[in-house]
Each structure stands twice: as C-alpha cells, then as structure tokens.
Design a protein around this nucleic acid. Sequence first.
DNA 1: GACTCATAATTAGGTGCCATACTATATGTC
DNA 2: GACATATAGTATGGCACCTAATTATGAGTC
Lengths: 176, 176
Amino acid sequence: MENLEHKHLAVLDEATRRGEQDTGNMRLCFEVLALAAAIDRSCAARLAPYRLSEGKFVLLSLLRDLPDGLAPYELAERAGVTRATVTGLLDGLERDGFLLRHGDKDDRRKISVRLTSMGKAMAEDLFVEHSQWIGSLFAGFEPREREVFSGFLLRAWRNVEMPLDAGQATGAGTSP
Amino acid sequence: MENLEHKHLAVLDEATRRGEQDTGNMRLCFEVLALAAAIDRSCAARLAPYRLSEGKFVLLSLLRDLPDGLAPYELAERAGVTRATVTGLLDGLERDGFLLRHGDKDDRRKISVRLTSMGKAMAEDLFVEHSQWIGSLFAGFEPREREVFSGFLLRAWRNVEMPLDAGQATGAGTSP
DNA sequence: GACTCATAATTAGGTGCCATACTATATGTC
DNA sequence: GACATATAGTATGGCACCTAATTATGAGTC
C-alpha cells in the first residue's frame, strides 16, 4: 500500500467499496504510475542543486560533444517536445550560463545552440552521475527478471497505445 | 524500441556509445517512464472532451456521495497536492459548473465544496468509464503475472525511495 | 522585383503543479 | 479585551509543458 499515491488510493478505495471487479488491474496501473512519479521526484531532487530540470538536462545531454551545436528545432525533435518549449528551456539555460545562442552564418532565421565551458563540464559530470543513478534504480534484477519485466511493460504499453476493439474489457469502446 | 520516449532514446544512445555497462537497467527505467507517460497522455485525451484534467477528475471522484461536501484542505490531503493547487482546480471546476463553494455555518475560514447536479452526473459516469479504462490497460495478465509484475514494481520503488548505502551501484552516494 | 508558400524562433495565453506570503478567522492564555 | 499562535483559503510568482499566432527570413515561381 506504500507504493501508491494518495489520489490513486482514493479512486481504488471507491472502486473496492462499490464491489468493482478487476481492482487488481487498476492497482497494477496505479503502481506503475506511482513508480514513475517517485522516479520523477527523485530525479528533480537530484537535479535541483544544479538549477536544472529533467528537460534542461536532456538538452544539455543532447548538446554534448557537438562543437557546432544544434538548432532549437533539432533539439525539439530529439527531445520530443515543441519548439516553444525548447525556447523556454534555452532561455533558462542561457540565463544560467550553460549555453549560448549563436546566429547562423547562412540563414538568419536559424540559430545554433552551443554549450559554454561551464555547460560542457556540467553536462559531462551530470551525465555520468545521472546514468549511474538511473541504472541503480533497477539494481538487483537478474537478466531474466529484467526480460520478464520489460515484456510486461511492453504488453501494457500496447494496451495503452493500441487498444483492441470490442473484445476488450471496456464498456462502450470509447476512443480519444 | 517503440515504447521509449525520444528524450530517453537520446540518453540511452549516448550511454551505449560510450560503452556504458548496465544500459539494460537504464532501458528498463525508461520503459517504465514511457508506459506512465503513455497512460497519462491517453488519460488526458479521454478527459479533455469533458473539460477535465486528471487532477480535476480526482477531486470530482473524492466529492462523490458526499452531500455535505469536503473542505479544500481535506481535498488536498486526500488528493496528495497542496492547498494552493486545490484552489486553482476548484476555480476551474466551479467555473465549468461542476461544483460550488459553500460557506461554513460555524467557521468563516472554512468552505464546503459540493458537487452540483451536473457534477454528480459527470462524476458518476466518468468514474465508471475511467475505472473500466484503467482496468483494461492491464487486461490479459494472469493473476500470477500480475503478482510478479507488482513485485518488480515494489522492488524498483524501494530502490527509488530507500536507496541503499555504499553497496549500491552509484558513484559517490549523493543524496537529494 | 513581386508574390506565395514554407520554415525558424519567439510570443502570448493556458494549465497544473509547486513554494511562499498574505489575509481573515479561530483558539487559547493572560 | 489584548495578544500570540495556528488554521483555512487565496494570491503571487515560478516552472515546464502545451496550442496557436506572430514575426522574420528563405525558397521557388512568374
């Protein structure tokens, strides 16, 4: 019960109270969400002292080892966010001295984002540290267990991304 | 590779490129995060037509079957968010006609939040539909598989919430 | 060169979360 | 009654995401 979020407990309690079937499935779903939320909170706590969010960290990672930098639209594509979001993140990273925007010599619409020395050092140190931390979250799993776990995640992911037709456990087969 | 987010792919590629051990653990972590993100997006898509977010839906769920309503601080506790957050969510829900704020007859600091008829109908319909949808995400899992899956999630959750001391795969044992 | 269409980056406004501070009120003590 | 402390709800500002619109520029056609 410890690895559930308050809000999910409330929903789960209510489903249980009304004699809902399949609270086991709901609970499993909430456990996945609770784990992801816990990872996000821990990640934020680890990055906060460096004045970084996960989104900013991703941009720093993308810019490492690229002396010519990247354009904001390329950063947006690789990070999977909109160009508007990248503009905001770059504002903060530039303000804090991690990178600079440079005009493109051929195309005045374009800019090239490059890390500063401080940005490079930060990106390097944090990449190593962050990677190790991420890896540590799943320490203690045997290769076979990881394989089974990953298979479960993929199956669930497919249920989310590609819900089946009427043969599924939903009522009216509603879609987004 | 399909059930990973762009940003995680970038980090994973980089870790692979530099001959990192344990990319299997990182990948597993990113798969959990990708599944949670997919669930969140699908949830948002399902609630959007009703002008609801997940946070608002949780408040509606909490207020169901409570003719006397709840105070905002109680909603905050049960939903696991701050009172400031609840104020904002209630603003939107009141604006859209789902609920009303009522002054407390004894304590002028307090208000009691109660659903309107429309809010009650919405909460009832959505609760059933949403519960079924959540349950459907883990359809097809045998009880034994769910048990194993849940065990994996709990183990990983413990790694996040209660990291071990030096015997862990992290470098300098940094803490938040 | 004028015009149309496309692209790059930014701006504006919205949302949901947060922390902090503020205002109003309640409670307890003297 | 004055005062100190605590509580309830809100206001303010920040952040990271979004969509849509705007501005500036580039490319292609005539």
